[in-house]
Amino acid sequence: MAGVSVDSGGKGGRRSLDSEINMIPMIDLLVCCISFLLLTAVWSHMARVNADAQVPGPPSTDQVEPQTPEKMLHVTMVTTSDDEKFVLEWRQGKTSVEAPIDVPRPHADRVAPGTCPAEPVRFTDLAKKIEAEWTARGTYRGAEATKRDQAVLHTDNKVPFCDLIAVIDAIYQPKREYPGAKKPVPAFNVTFSVN
């Protein structure tokens, strides 16, 4: 039992060459492996979405000339009682450089204030529009660029966190190659507007 027979003859009165590989240690090892892997298994995979606060570094004596502010994509979440939409606007400092674009928010994503739907919130139209905007007007589109475009998120203070994450998720939709990165990285950095 629990053996593998290797028949290799045994004629002429000589001792049989039948040998048995003992399978019990192998089965024990497999069972131990399974027990260990089942006990240490992680069934819920967590991930993260990043946001950068854009805190300025310490003052440098090298910088003499004032830098012109970079073009940034401002994503505003309009949540009034009669209208819910997103507004995309490219701004350089406080100056608008492109006409604002309205993206309607689908009715299916709307829930009562302060609550979240059972299914994950996805703003697919917003993601498509942001990707199109970056492809057309993004500053750092080349694979060699070591900086990334900046997106600023403006929201009402009462917006639930699930909606915030859905908007950040949509902003991270466009991706590009990045020097030194093994896989494509999001084309935008996201930060929050202080309002």
Partner: peptide
């Protein structure tokens, strides 16, 4: 946003939000 701002001012400008995949 208040937690985000506090983290940034306390020396943690890179804030990640944990989410389910």
């Amino acid at each position: 946003k208040s937690v985000f701002q506090t983290a940034a001012l306390s020396g943690y400008p890179n804030v990640s939000f944990m989410v389910g995949q």
